[in-house]
Design a protein around this nucleic acid. Sequence first.
DNA 1: GCTTGAAATTTTAGGCTTGAAATAAATACC
DNA 2: GGTATTTATTTCAAGCCTAAAATTTCAAGC
Lengths: 160, 160
Amino acid sequence: MAETAAKQEALSKTRLRLWLKLLKSVNGIEAEIRRNLRDQHGTTLPRFDVMSALARFPDGLKMSELSTFLKVSNGNVTGIVDKLTEEGLVLRVAVPGDRRAQVARLTPKGKAAFEELAANHETWIDELLEGWSADDIAALSTRLDLVLKRQSQEESGNAK
Amino acid sequence: MAETAAKQEALSKTRLRLWLKLLKSVNGIEAEIRRNLRDQHGTTLPRFDVMSALARFPDGLKMSELSTFLKVSNGNVTGIVDKLTEEGLVLRVAVPGDRRAQVARLTPKGKAAFEELAANHETWIDELLEGWSADDIAALSTRLDLVLKRQSQEESGNAK
DNA sequence: GCTTGAAATTTTAGGCTTGAAATAAATACC
DNA sequence: GGTATTTATTTCAAGCCTAAAATTTCAAGC
């Protein structure tokens, strides 16, 4: 039994080291994407994320749906959509029958801009994950599902 | 050859999907750690990161060493160390022979506070990565080394 | 029709982050 | 010794982010 406890202890340290490495890797990739978005396109990751979400829903998303989907605060989305709207990339559309709500949608200009961004984004990721085979990816994907499952359980547990 | 191109195309999409899943998982874990630090200890991740770095270097780190190590800006570290200093967790020590530089060190109080945090942190990670075996971790670790190697190469390439 | 509570959104105060400008001190060169 | 460059750090302006408060509208119950 002493051996088991010792192994558990070692596993805990091993997991911690992996987490730190994982965080470093992901932060590094994210930093490069932010850099590319800024230097090559004059935009930012939060703006890209909002446009990406809206691109998936051509009929638009309510502000609250957007913030839930992106897992950021309502107030945060307000500011980003404000900017994108000023630039003519996003449009706020009134929801018929509910004067409280508004739907944010990409304009044609916004859609075109996003498609350009998305194509480059995919290329960047492809280069950054160079050397990852389909098998590598499948293996990691199933491990990540464990983490995501845990997270979605927690969410529903925290729901009021 | 058409098949090869098609496979490449598919791999690119697969990598993109993995990246999105990886990002979601890591962000979820990070969010929980931030929540725990705030709710259980009244502190934040950036503060924990600074204390963690200083804990590894008992003789202290210069402000610039600290920002390089943590990969954040100089100005950022200034503000965080300011706060930690006000609270008596960190000390700024003059560097003999260079009146420009200062070394930040944990105070005994800071060291004790960090050790408490670090122990909990390890437990949180252990729970969040529940189900990850030593073999899983070893496999992922070698894949991540690919990413990290690429990142360190880029850094040295970007050095002036 | 009023009132009460819930829902959608914006506003606000405060912390984190960056890149760039400013300051001050050390170093190198002549 | 004097000037220019580099180095260490802080300050600053602006964007991002959150949680909480405020605002407006809707919906239910009476």
